[in-house]
Nucleic acid binder design. Structure first.
Lengths: 235, 235
DNA sequence: ATGACCAAGTGATCTGATCATTTTCGTTCC
DNA sequence: GGAACGAAAATGATCAGATCACTTGGTCAT
């Protein structure tokens, strides 16, 4: 703490990463937009290419940018987020998986209640699309994609709450590839029952019945939790 | 999806980052332990130094490792976590801050209830320490440090729930430097009242009264939320 | 003992080049 | 005219080696 004001020494890399984020903000670039080439950034900031790349790797790890070989640097999907799922997280153990579901069972029900109060027409439509697609996937037997769409239902539900931070939290605890885990644990829940439960939740949200939406979501997740934790004990 | 089994092309960097995490796991290194020098890693994996550094920057961004100039590479504080606070997140706007507090007011009360059920002697002691330190800081007038300790109380409370994932979520939504934000918004809550509320929460947790712990935590956060959202409307 | 100093280890950054992939666009062939 | 092909440009990925800056631990004089 030698500098005045308690300002710690910022490395060149820290400045670079921050400057690049500023540049993206200045230009009002959105997710998916092309940014600038590595060489061009090196010139702009008067630093060497490897240094720019280190800074970009840091941004990349948080989903702020994306590097596509032969194509360019693009703005990432998670730019501006406060809460993130660890992209380098190891495959969770059975215990950790149970813990994760407990966390979801605790967080998501009140989020569903909030969604029932704040839902918009667009959000309801998005949720409806997920259920339609899920029904099709059950019919076609594409269980891998089905699991993904079902997870997406929960994420859309959180988005319907109108609170971006809550949506980020729910997204973070649902990105973990639970499907893969469930298959490893030889768990195969009743897919039709899952769909019916999701339908009931959406109906409650549509009817703006916060209490019901909360209860149904809790029952839904508790049901999943029961199945999984039983299986975790008998591997 | 050209390769069999749906395995997408993994770049050298992906392999490197994963291999380094494996190496850390193999050696059972814990947070704070020294890892290996950049040059040594480059030799071990038969790649160039800049490549190793890119991989390390990626790990660093998620808190898996830490690079200390002139000293070495160390295992980071957040290794193995599933949920993270974005280390590159911009300073949140007033609206975003209100949203963040709403999220906390929704998540933390049930977490407190869980903590009341699962708390250990160690967890209670840690919580007690925070309150003792907070009381000292109020007396000494160190308000900056006080805000940090108060945040830490909430994190310790989440840890007392026994659910690491929930602890990570709560940590993620409390690391944002709310203190700084509050000062910007010219908010100065009643510090003694805050301490008293924290004391009451701890008492409820110690008495294993889940319902009371939940209610007190909700009232506490709703109170903060009210003050902040009022201030956000009158800047 | 204690302090100043120095040297080895290590991260930080630079320079410049080569390889791999994607994209673009002109050419050719139907 | 349009589609398939292929060369060239743009761009990211990786390498090699060198130099600068910081930390640390030991040495040495006091």
């Amino acid at each position: 703490m030698s500098t005045s004001g308690g300002v710690v020494r910022r490395s060149l890399l820290d400045d670079l990463a921050a400057s690049m984020l500023d540049l993206i903000a200045e230009r009002k670039l959105a997710s998916g937009d092309q940014f600038e080439s590595v060489r061009s950034l090196a010139e702009r900031f008067k630093v060497a290419v490897p240094t720019v790349r280190e800074a970009l790797r840091r941004l990349e790890a948080t989903g702020a940018v994306e590097l596509r070989h032969g194509s360019g640097v693009y703005v990432g999907q998670h730019i501006g987020r406060l809460v993130l799922a660890n992209p380098l997280a190891p495959t969770p153990s059975a215990d950790r998986l149970v813990e994760l579901l407990q966390a979801r069972a605790l967080i998501e029900p009140p989020v569903a209640a909030l969604a029932a109060q704040n839902r918009t027409a667009e959000a309801l439509e998005r949720l409806d699309e997920r259920l339609t697609e899920a029904a099709d996937l059950i019919a076609s037997g594409n269980h891998a994609r089905l699991a993904e769409v079902n997870m997406d239902f929960h994420r859309c539900l959180a988005q319907a709450s109108g609170n971006a931070t809550l949506a980020e939290v729910v997204e973070s605890v649902t990105v973990v590839n639970v499907r893969e885990q469930l298959e490893i644990l030889h768990i195969h829940g009743d897919r039709q029952a899952d769909l019916d439960e999701h339908r009931a939740i959406l109906d409650a949200v549509r009817a703006a019945d916060a209490e019901l939406a909360e209860r149904l979501t809790r029952e839904h997740l508790d049901g999943v939790l029961t199945v999984v934790s039983d299986s975790a004990q008998h591997p």
